[in-house]
Design a protein around this nucleic acid. Structure first.
Lengths: 158, 158
DNA sequence: CTATTACGGATAGTAGATATCCACGATTTG
DNA sequence: CAAATCGTGGATATCTACTATCCGTAATAG
């Protein structure tokens, strides 16, 4: 079980965009340069975030990305699911129906308990991530670093 | 983020072994045949479960596997970690220290908040799995199926 | 000693994540 | 309108981890 590194990129970039002046777009190369990320690959994750409604993209000169909503309305879970997908990590293959002791479909109307336990754990994980917003991440930054990044974002206006 | 299918195998097999008469070993081919699993590959997961102290393996004629401890003392988390590894799914690469706005090491004495949030969620997941034992999984089986598998395990004695 | 059974290393195949590039379309500026 | 800018999405290549199998070794019961 491993999360893709794109999740880390998405969370840092979204937090950064939350520091830009309201409504201002930031170009992709500025975002990539800020964390020394490969721009071409970051683009894929930014596309996913845009499709999921976390970011808003503006094409053309003076275009770029901004948050699609207020930072307080975007949860960490949304960013994670946009980049990594929302599929459940445990894929029940119903092996109880196979083999020597294969259960009949009638005996499997109730979902597999193992499946339920794994899904409950997944829901606990998601709930935990749903309780934190981008505004919380911004608020947690040391104020010195926050001011510094705010200035860099303001200067990134084309 | 995806869990390996070996986790499902491990949980089903461990639950099955919890139904065997106390102290009795069950051969690997019986376990594999029970769920129509490829025996050679299942062996890898059984080895991991043995190394982790979840199962006890006995070599030689009339050998096989049994639970290393009472079913009530083995948590689902132990089985999952034995098969899938205990590594945290979020690997923080400290991208805040890289690129144009790279923070100095002194500015990073406090752990990255994003890292903390992801680790908290992971801990919520683990806690959820730690609260369920193999005895709970056995207790959740419909009694008809439970009796059937108990009989099959008893008959599997070599 | 011999048959049985698990252990562990070597070896492939496969799927998904990582990474890059380019043609296309949309938009703003002049 | 024309040119420059910028995001979109498809094609492609590489790398890693999971899936899967085989075989020689070690240990044990009879």
């Amino acid at each position: 079980m491993k999360l893709s590194q794109g999740v880390e990129w998405g969370l840092h970039v979204a937090t950064l965009l939350a520091l830009a002046p309201a409504g201002q777009t930031v170009r992709r190369d500025a975002l990539a340069g800020h964390y020394a990320l490969p721009e071409a690959y970051l683009a894929k994750h930014l596309q996913a975030l845009t499709r999921s409604g976390v970011l808003h993209a503006t094409p053309g000169p003076r275009g770029g990305y901004r948050l699609a909503r207020a930072a307080a309305d975007i949860t960490v879970l949304e960013v994670v699911e946009a980049v990594d997908g929302a599929a459940k990590p445990f894929i029940c293959q119903e092996i109880r129906q196979r083999g020597a002791s294969g259960l009949s479909p009638e005996e499997c109307r109730r979902p597999c308990l193992i499946h339920s336990v794994m899904n409950d754990a997944d829901e606990a994980w998601r709930s935990s991530l749903r309780e934190v917003t981008l505004a919380d991440l911004v608020a947690g930054l040391p104020s010195r670093i926050r001011r510094r990044n705010e200035k860099l974002m303001a200067d990134a206006a084309s």
